[in-house]
């Protein structure tokens, strides 16, 4: 057990937990933010993607100890009032089906758009290939990322 301090969505938390515990379970079960999802536990599906100091990481394999003192953003913190261009585009193009993987999809796409405001299809494929969607929303995700880029670039 160790005392770990995290900033999640700009709020500070002091957690007493096993530093070997993956960040995912700390976010979900200790902090209580359930938007970040468990899908595979081995960084294969991307459902657990969060931003750790601005980078998209798979929280299911990121040890809590590594996140100590760092800034984390989860799907709940990506915008106020569901106003991120990606969220707007996801709603406009009606992307989600079951919706379970979409937090992770949006968190990965957010980093892509920050680094590359005008992504090509190939850029999107490369940035998003770590995020599985069993419902098969890929063609809509691709369109929605282009649309979000448009919204973002005004």
């Amino acid at each position: 057990m160790a005392s770990i301090s995290l900033t999640v969505n700009k709020k500070k938390y002091q957690i007493d937990a096993d530093p070997e515990m993956p960040l995912l379970w700390a976010i979900r079960d200790l902090i209580g933010l359930k938007g970040t999802k468990f899908g595979c536990g081995m960084a294969q599906c991307g459902a657990c993607t969060v931003h750790l100091d601005g980078e998209a990481v798979r929280s299911c394999v990121t040890l809590l100890g590594r996140a100590d003192g760092q800034e984390i953003v989860t799907i709940e913190g990506i915008s106020d009032n569901t106003s991120h261009p990606l969220q707007k585009a996801w709603i406009e193009l009606q992307v989600p089906q079951c919706g379970y993987c979409q937090s992770g999809q949006i968190m990965s796409a957010a980093v892509l758009l920050r680094e590359n405001p005008h992504p090509t299809d190939q850029d999107i494929d490369e940035a998003m290939m770590g995020n599985l969607c069993r419902c098969g929303t890929y063609t809509r995700i691709r369109k929605a990322i282009h649309r979000a880029a448009e919204i973002m670039n005004g």
Binding site: R28, K34, I75, Q87, I91, V95, P96, G99
Partner: peptide, 23 residues
């Protein structure tokens, strides 16, 4: 017609509750 589905916004912001999210 295809009106915007009402479950969609909650599936873009983490609010949608799935079984695993219950406690």
């Amino acid at each position: 017609t295809s009106p915007p589905r009402k479950d969609i916004p909650s599936k873009t912001n983490g609010e949608a509750v799935f079984g695993l999210d219950c406690s």
